[in-house]
Design a protein around this nucleic acid. Structure first.
Length: 731
RNA sequence: GCCGGGAUGGCGGAAUCGGUAGACGCAGCGGAUUCAAAAUCCGCCGCCGCAAGGUGUGUGGGUUCGAGUCCCACUCUCGGCACCA
């Protein structure tokens, strides 16, 4: 990947804890302070390795359309994350220079998706690290202090979006490319150097953030887009100010143009001056894979003073970490391991140093599935076997992976394809994203920040009459704890081990209970209330098996009679109910809605227990229907289903039995029931022949006693007949 | 803040295309069985009302003969926001 230019080394901005002298994960920064030290976290630029996922942005976006087996919401989230936007990149000219000459060749470049509002630009804002900002700060202590302040604070997008927008003027001016006016350059804490060109144009009249910024610092607000007859006021922001549905005003030659016309005309004029063009911009950023932790997969690079960064030769892979490092709270312990660090340069043989950064664990999870499908080939990354097994037919994972893991995996697959390792272009054909399982987590906030989590078994928990938690204290010393409902997590000590359920009730009950609780895609608040119900149900299934063996099966004659037989009404109704439930269950299985499959098996048992059981025909119907129940149940409770299936002589192995399909003959019925509505309200029911014609149904409905009662003598204005469902009489 | 979900009885949830809201289960209540209990079985169980009936799917509007389902505007909540994975 290094050789192909897919991997590269560049600087990255990280959270730096100045006390522990270590890089912190975003999760470890709480209110701007290190979770262990409580020290103010700084942004620091350090070198690191990046994978150029942005080179694949177009394909990652386009191929989403081929992922028909993925949930729509995941594809949408990925598309929005990749974030393709078309806009205009253009420059403001200036003559600001330092000792090295004109800064940025005399051009301040910005990107905008709203080129139609360029005539409304009243300021520009640059990032704190922008060359113009750094230049302006020379001899301006106040500005230098502000830039320093921007160095603290978060690198997280969520924090950037919600923080107070602040800025300072640089005193520098650039020239508006279309009006020739001088526009002041500000430094803004909300402008990111790593994003685009690290500078934005400010159009307060039509951008909500710019509007707030301009109000705060008394910058001019100039309306250049109008919508219909709505009147503009600089007093308060309104939604339509940011709309693309208006036409240009106060924009000279562009007046009257709509959004698209204005963008086209303005882009053409900028291009004619050679200082702008239409450009596609992606929200997606390159993937930084370096981690400053010793226990990850080493990045196999050797740094040589003469040869630069050299990949570790194949015959020296894998790079093996020393296993006896002791972290002492002062950065990566590999830095102190001379035995690991010192190595000869593979190119020139001179002393060189190993890279100590390890890889993001997302790297491993991006292709483990392909490695699992590799049977042989110890000397290969993946072998040809993967072509046989891959792609993954059905991938299952939590919804929290909807973007990062699943996007990295898709990217990695495309890279492997381009390196000639595999021939497929997508890793996962069908995707099921499970909802998160939530549970209460109990914690105490120690002085200096952070949270200490405790297991529920360590606490006394107080609950109100409705079972809502009102408080919790630590058993050992009575410390009062806070609680939050959150995802089960190793770090929050709120996971639930199904083992205790399995020990108490058995694996079938535990599995059935969990499948029955909710559809898998849905967020679920964990509770084991109700597991008794699953246990009771399976015991009833077992009992019915014994009842069938002891009292029912014996009635079946030597000659089977069921096929083609005309069944008594109650027996036909029972058989129809089972086949209807089977039809429902099969449909739900296709949707992976397992809770209603479980519910269908319960309904089947309820019906079986009430079914007629005297006589050869009844016994045959029960035999058929119980066989259906066992097979529908088998994916949910394989053990009990198998034991009953083979024990009752249905067959040797239920896993090899054909999946049941509903029979048309069992589903057929002579009469159906239609709901009767009068003015949209349910007033009764109507029994009609299954093949009844529409006017016959209408006639029957109009003379129904409920119709007569609720029409109160008014004529029926309209009759709506929904075949097989209902009749609605409007009067 | 932005992107994507979700909200239905005391609780988990069901309702496939706009057509019987609350299936199935938990909890609860009443009864049978039992010396008693457990287990099991039968019945009741959204809210208001004696009933007829009215009302009801987070809130406020709208479309429709008919809305949990569609549209508009909100509220709360969950996931993600690039170094938790």
């Amino acid at each position: 990947m290094l050789e192909k230019g897919i991997a590269e080394r560049k600087t990255q901005v990280v959270n730096w804890d100045p006390v522990d002298q270590t890089v912190l994960a975003n999760e470890q920064v709480i209110d701007g302070r290190g979770w262990r030290t409580g020290a103010l976290v700084e942004k620091r630029e350090i070198p690191g390795y990046y994978l150029k996922i942005t080179d694949y942005a177009d394909e990652l976006l386009g191929d989403l359309d081929t992922l028909g087996g993925w949930p729509e919401r995941v594809r949408l989230m990925q598309a929005n994350w990749i974030g393709k936007s078309t806009g205009v990149r253009f420059a403001f000219k200036h003559d600001i220079a330092d000792d090295a000459g004109l800064i940025g060749d005399g051009q301040l470049w910005v990107f905008t998706t709203r080129a139609d509002t360029i005539m409304g630009v009243t300021f520009c804002a640059v990032a704190a690290e922008h060359p113009l900002a750094l230049h302006a700060a020379k001899g301006k202590p106040e500005l230098a202090a502000f830039i320093e302040k921007c160095r603290h604070g978060s690198v997280m997008e969520a924090d950037m979006a919600t923080m107070e927008k602040e800025g300072l003027p640089t005193g520098l001016f650039v020239t508006h490319p279309l009006t020739g006016k001088q526009v002041e350059v500000w430094v803004g804490n909300y402008v990111l150097m790593s994003y685009g060109d690290g500078a934005v144009m400010g159009v307060p009249a039509h951008d909500e953030r710019d509007f707030a910024f301009a109000r705060k610092y008394a910058l001019p607000i100039e309306q250049v887009v109008a919508v219909d007859d709505k009147s503009y006021s600089t007093e308060a922001w309104e939604e339509w100010y940011g709309s693309k549905d208006g036409v240009c005003v106060n924009s000279g030659k562009y007046d009257g143009l709509n959004y698209q016309q204005a963008v086209d005309a303005i882009a053409a004029d900028l291009a004619a001056q050679g200082i702008g063009e239409k450009k596609v911009q992606w929200r997606l950023r390159d993937w930084g894979i370096s981690r400053q932790r010793y226990w990850g997969c080493p990045i196999p690079i050797i740094h040589c003073d003469s040869c630069g960064s050299v990949p570790v030769p194949d015959d020296q892979l894998p790079v093996v970490l020393p296993e006896d490092c002791v972290p002492d709270g002062s950065g990566n312990p590999l830095h102190k391991r001379e035995d690991f660090l010192n190595v000869a340069c593979p190119c020139c043989g001179k002393p060189a140093r190993r890279e100590t950064d390890t890889m993001d664990t997302f790297v491993d999870s991006s292709w483990y599935y392909a490695r699992y499908a590799t049977t042989f080939g110890k000397d290969k990354m993946v072998d040809d076997e993967t072509g046989y097994w891959m792609t993954v037919d059905q991938y299952i994972g939590g919804i929290e992976h909807a973007i990062l893991h699943l996007l990295y995996s898709r990217f990695w697959t495309k890279v492997m394809r381009d390196l000639g390792l595999v021939t497929y272009r997508e890793p996962f054909a069908h995707l099921l994203t499970q909802g998160m399982v939530l549970n209460n987590a109990f914690f105490h906030k120690p002085e200096g920040g952070g949270k200490n989590y405790y297991w529920e078994s360590e606490l006394d928990v107080q609950k109100d009459a409705k079972g809502q938690i009102t408080g919790a204290t630590l058993k050992k010393d009575g410390t009062v704890l806070e609680h939050e409902l959150t995802t089960m997590s190793k770090s929050k000590n709120n996971g639930v081990d199904p083992q205790s359920l399995i020990e108490q009730y058995g694996a079938d009950t535990a599995r059935f209970f969990m499948m029955f609780a909710a559809p898998p895609e849905q967020t679920l608040e964990w509770s084991d209330a109700g597991v008794e119900g699953a246990y009771r149900f399976l015991r009833r299934v077992w009992s019915f098996g014994h009842l069938f063996a002891s009292e029912i099966r014996g009635q079946i004659g030597a000659q089977r009679q069921l096929t083609g037989a005309k069944l008594p009404e109650d027996l036909a109704a029972f058989r129809r109910e089972i086949h209807l439930l089977l039809k429902q269950a099969n449909y739900d299985l296709g949707k992976q809605q397992f809770n209603t499959v479980a519910s269908a098996t319960m309904k089947m048992l309820n019906a079986l227990e009430k079914a007629p059981r005297q006589g050869a025909l009844a016994a045959e119907v029960i035999e058929e229907c119980f066989g259906i129940l066992l097979r529908v149940l088998s994916p949910l409770t394989p053990h009990i289903s198998h034991a009953l299936w083979s024990g009752l002589g249905y067959g040797e192995d239920i896993l090899k039995a054909a999946w049941p399909e509903p029979l048309d003959a069992a589903l057929a019925q002579d009469e159906i029931e239609l709901m009767l509505q009068v003015n949209g309200k349910l007033r009764g029911a109507l029994r009609v022949p299954a093949e009844a014609a529409k006017d016959a149904i209408e006639a029957a409905a109009l003379t129904h006693e409920a119709t007569v009662k609720f029409l109160e003598g008014r004529p029926a204005k309209k009759v709506v007949v929904v075949p097989g469902r209902l009749v609605n009489i409007v009067g």
